[in-house]
Amino acid sequence: MNIGILGLGLIGGSLGYDLRSQGHHLLGVSRRESTCQTAVALGSVDEASVEMNLLAAADVIFICTPIALIVPQVEQLIAHLSPATIITDVGSVKAPIVEAISPLWERFVGGHPMAGTADSGIEAAQKNLFVDRPYVLTPDANTPQDAIAILEEIVRSLGAKIYHCQPAQHDRAVSWISHLPVMVSAALITACMGETDPAVLQLAQNLASSGFRDTSRVGGGNPELGVMMAKYNRQALLSSLQQYRQNINEVINLIEQEDWKTLEAKLQSTQQARPFFTE
């Protein structure tokens, strides 16, 4: 199968590695010629170009650009394609993307692989990035079943776990477990950097270990991606942030009141709940 990738960064490059290793012919398009050359040299794609018409031969195309570029790039791309071509994306927000693209292209299937690292760019791409990771598909009622089936087969070949849901459901869910943590983690780092005593700040940085690394990791990721999450999933993220703020205020009140019994009960509850999000 000829598979196209528009956007040769971490996700696009990683898709290229895995799909090419299975015998598919990979066609890559990037805004930069240097990225195209690197992707071919690294073995992520067979051919690469800055021109979209390279993807005219693709049977399935993954749109792996930043969220803000997905719809504009698809609008340009479809002029080069056969009506049989399947288009999917990897954006972390689904409702606005599906609403915009579905009327333009019948064989579009919204997608979101829940995988990645704090690094970006084609050099950050890695093999087996999607193994045992969730991969969400958000087809609508009009999406052709054969297009869904073909994409499901490709996703399974990556070793990912497929989930189906409505675009709006996806956006509410990821606001809790992906977008909210980015903002909370960023706020944690900002708060720590607000320490006014340079000696104490330096000591805190020296003492920071696995606990701080775990809770601050996503706050130290790609700033552009964080802004796009907030911009395109604004309402769901605001709702999550407001509920998070209520919980923070509750913890502050318990500590101010020295209500250790209630605080312990709250921490016992979170201890019991965490495995439902990590197993």
Rank of each mutant, 00 (worst) to 15 (best):
L8T: 03
G9M: 11
S14E: 06
R31D: 02
R31L: 03
A39N: 08
A39I: 04
G43N: 00
S49F: 06
S49L: 06
I61Y: 14
F62L: 04
T65S: 13
L69S: 15
L77I: 09
A79C: 03
S82M: 11
A84T: 14
S92I: 05
P96E: 12
V98T: 15
E99L: 07
S102E: 12
P103S: 08
R107S: 10
F108K: 11
V109S: 02
P113F: 05
T117D: 02
I122G: 08
I122N: 13
A125S: 14
D132K: 15
L137M: 13
P139G: 12
P139D: 07
E152V: 05
E152Y: 00
H164R: 02
A173S: 15
I177A: 01
S178V: 07
S178I: 01
L180I: 03
V182A: 07
S185E: 02
A191M: 11
N206D: 10
R213L: 05
T215V: 07
S216R: 04
V218Q: 02
G219P: 06
G220N: 09
G220A: 13
P223T: 14
P223W: 04
P223D: 10
G226V: 05
L241C: 12
Q242F: 13
Y244E: 10
Y244C: 09
Q246H: 14
E250G: 04
L254C: 05
Q257L: 15
D259M: 04
W260Y: 13
T262R: 14
K266I: 12
K266M: 08
Q272L: 11
F276C: 06
